[in-house]
Write a protein that binds this DNA or RNA. Structure first.
Lengths: 108, 108
DNA sequence: TCTTTATATAGCAATATTGCAATATTAAAA
DNA sequence: TTTTAATATTGCAATATTGCTATATAAAGA
């Protein structure tokens, strides 16, 4: 298959999984961290930060954009990418809600 | 390719991505939520909770176990699964560290 | 012992992901 | 206008993921 079933889950579960999945690649983690750290918008300075080719970086950026984590604006012939602050807080809420739960007493 | 490059990233980035990736499926989110909520160890009660066949559930459980999120002990002819509390806190730290970062002023 | 229950594994088919080279595309620069 | 720089897209090959059915396996029960 390769196809993930979606019926039988809540919308929240699907949303959570979708975001987690996008964060589930070291290149995308590295991009997000970089954008959070340098606190500035970048074009493909990422070429110097990631061990990947330009087309591959472009695709990772597109995936991050698809779930709203980053946004990009055109600046002449280059792109300015940065974290979407609002969406970032939303994601913090979502994932934080899950992570914040306490496992209770171990029973195995 | 289909194969994720690992050179050129920090160990922390790879670890983060690995955990996020495992959480990147609604079935695995549902399993984790369920285990956190009922605060009890279960066998395949999950059959009643997920829209998946027993073998498929078993595989999702195996993936969660591989990264240490859950652990299982044999109980007669069935398995007791539960969240690994220690690992859970570790993951909260890791992911929380990323999520906690503030995007700073929007510039695009 | 035979059967049932609970689980895991193997094997398969379909789709998804990842990465690169090659090629568009678009704007700035010469 | 030609060239350069910065990106995105296409096309491809290799591997990964997902889900199922069928089949082990192992303990409990009859």
């Amino acid at each position: 298959m390769g196809l993930t079933k979606t019926e039988g889950y809540t919308q929240a579960q699907i949303e959570l999984a979708t975001v987690a999945k996008v964060l589930g690649h070291p290149a995308r983690i590295a991009i997000v961290q970089h954008l959070l750290e340098i606190n500035a918008c970048i074009g493909n300075d990422l070429m110097d930060v990631l061990p990947l080719s330009q087309p591959t970086i472009s695709r990772h950026l597109a995936e991050l954009k698809k779930v709203g984590i980053i946004q990009g604006t055109i600046e002449g012939s280059s792109m300015n990418y940065c974290i979407n602050a609002h969406r970032w807080r939303e994601i913090r809420q979502m994932l934080g809600g899950l992570l914040g739960m306490e496992p209770g007493a171990q029973c195995c």
